[in-house]
Design a binder for these strands. Sequence first.
RNA 1: GGGCAAGUGGCGGAACUGGUAUACGCGCACGACUCAAAAUCGUGUUCCUCCGGGAGUGAGGGUUCGAUUCCCUCCUUGCCCACCA
Length: 818
Amino acid sequence: MRRYNPKEIEPKWQKTWQENQIYQATESDGKPKHYVLEYFPYPSGSAMHVGHVRNYTIGDVVSRTKRMQGFSVLHPMGWDAFGLPAENYAIKTNISPQEAVAKNVANFKKQLIQMGFSYDWSRELNSTDPEYYKWTQWFFLLLFKKGLAYQKESLQWWCPHDKTVLANEQVENGRCWRCGHLVEKKALKQWFFRITDYADRLAKDLDKVDWSEGIKAMQRNWIGRSEGAQISFQVENSSEQLKVFTTRPDTIYGATFLVLAPEHKLVNKLSNSGRRSEIEKYTAEAERKNDIDRMETEREKTGVFTGSYGVNPANGQKIPIWVADYVLPGYGTGAIMAVPAHDERDWQFAKKFDLPIIHAYSQEGKKEDQSYWGEGVIKNSDKYDGITTQEARKQITLDLTSKKMAENVTNYKIRDWLISRQRYWGAPIPIIHCPKHGAVPVPEDQLPVILPEMDSYEPSGDGRSPLARVPEFVNTKCPVCGEPAQRETDTMDGFACSSWYFLRFADPHNSVEPFSKEKAKFWLPVDDYIGGAEHAVMHLLYARFWTKVMYDEGLISFDEPFSTLRNHGMILAPDGNKMSKSKNNTIEPDEIINQGYGADSIRLMELFIGPWNQSANWSVEGLAGMYRFLQRVWVIVFEFTEAGESKTERNIELELGINRSVHKAIKKVNSDIKDLGFNTALSALMECVNQLYKMKSPENFTQAHDSWKTALENVLILLAPFAPHITEELWKELGHNNSIHLSAWPSWDEHLVAENLINLAIQINGKVKAAILVAANATEEEVVRLARNEKSVSKHLEGKTIKKTVYIPGRIVSLVVT
RNA sequence: GGGCAAGUGGCGGAACUGGUAUACGCGCACGACUCAAAAUCGUGUUCCUCCGGGAGUGAGGGUUCGAUUCCCUCCUUGCCCACCA
């Protein structure tokens, strides 16, 4: 018998699969389609570790299973290679980003191939390829023409380390999501995508997709839709009205002051001359203040009185107008009505500055000594007293609306997507600035706007892109008038590239359009999108937005790109920490393969370690168990083929045992794999192999040759999606010349799986006292009689009376005695 | 503070729709093979026990003939969001 040596068989089969192109996706074979996609990776300098590999393993098992179950499977791979990590890596290693990407892609690809993943490499794509970013630019122009891309001067998050602006989503706790430096605010003219126009649909359509509640909640939270009213307060002795946004118009009778954000337009106008210097000092301070400080919820409230008053439109009360930085300028109207009795922040502010509070009362009529924001019955509100808060919300808004002092308004926390970056390594924004015609789109036939090669592409930090230093790039002619004009020098956020790549995979080599409508219609939407939760708000939100824009444009016939989203759990280092180069605790598949375990054992470990959607610590010892299991499969198959065919007397009992064991496994693997229960599917296979292992012997192989052969074939097929190399090798050993990965998935015979003798537990007063074997078709009467006569049961029944008997067929007999 | 997960042997975890808790794997112990070791194979492995049993799924209650599973209260951990009115 040959030894099981993964180092020898794995590269061999990887080469054969590639040569025979067995994983190529085709639209024309009449099978139903299934599109499995893993987030396309960012090929960075450091190699992939076993944590990354889990994502691709899950996708590969799904793809392989679906393929064997008769689907035409699209399982592609590409490279999301624009962006800061690639550029920073290139700067650090002193090579060009182009070279850096080529090098890293080659390394990643080698790693993926040696894991035996079944990608259709003929569809490989790279977001930095002009043939790809040509269409990213095309989509930019589509958004521009639809009025969804615009330029605006505003204060933006700026990372002083990476020397570029960042989108809101890319600022984490006041720090840059890439390098971790504290971000600042900088006034710059920037490009935005009007994602806020789609906020409502992006929130609502989450109901249509099969995603985990967690991710949906994160998106809903990020979009932050809230319904309320915009209410106008007349400013006393002025023609100005102060508009505030509130979700609780029902509490308007409890409003005791108004608050403006320091940045609010009316601050200056409403400042009393006597108080002006104090107010200016406060707003200047607020502006200077670090944004993290300002967002700190534990901080003491600060603020200053303007000296002006507003009139409550509901009751005509005059209330003071304050300025405070706990009110945010970018949300709602940048001004609020403060109701200390029903809002914790207003309560704190009122306490701090000794402002009046109209207290809430508990149900027992007790005066509350804190703010109360729950629902209830209205009090102290004139004619609204006695109705519920929900009812009052509607009624008060309605009454104020008729007086033209309010309107229903829906607000969102989400802001427009800041798309421009002042960095070199991105797709150039295809716009030409003409002194006469303003921002003019680059004509479609001039796309792509090629990113020029530069010797020195480091950011300067002056807020301008390095491309501004290339006159041949910048200086051009206006497409409208032909007069001298200048190209836009900012590049696009890398997330633009990844907002449509899943569509390009349907038609990756199309040179006349981003994708053909027919091919996109055939393959999309993605049936299984697999990846980690780190993309919950950024990529997934942006890709949904682009998809809806394309839908509105009639390019595609669906408006949600990912029907099912599968969020896998993270693999942590054995020490329980996240794997990272800096912690020096990464484990790479390469080392394990070199040790001789092989990719198949790694794949098994990735899945057997726990439920696919829960995180787990990598286990070095566990890997040996996977290898042992595979080796047992190896041994049975070889001992079987070496035993030969000599047909002696058939052993019916043995045949039945073999078949039963395998059919049970087929059934279990089928039901588990539907919900990605890979760990339990593998345990069922191990159980089956252990049983077969105990049955095997040279005589038994020849006595039940055909049953053994079918059984082993079925075991190999079930195992093939998990361990593609060893199963392919053993498939050949069993005499097959085609690939196991193109064979049909097995079904099971329910008669073989069903037991005719059932082990039934007997409970007395809820405690298990015994177990009896009964025929599966026994009547209740028989079963109860057998149960009562069982020795360990009858002794508990002596001198007692049975009050109740419960019999659940196939499960339990429960006797209640006194 | 809000949302979403999760808590079961020495460890990773399993348990269908409320029906014999601890499948499968790791580790460990003992045995076989070996001059020996590794590898491999076999047996055992929740805890306590006076060997009759008893306790047991984060804690405490409840519903039920029966609860890891359903309900209530609480504790702990992870992730995401957080002055969004």
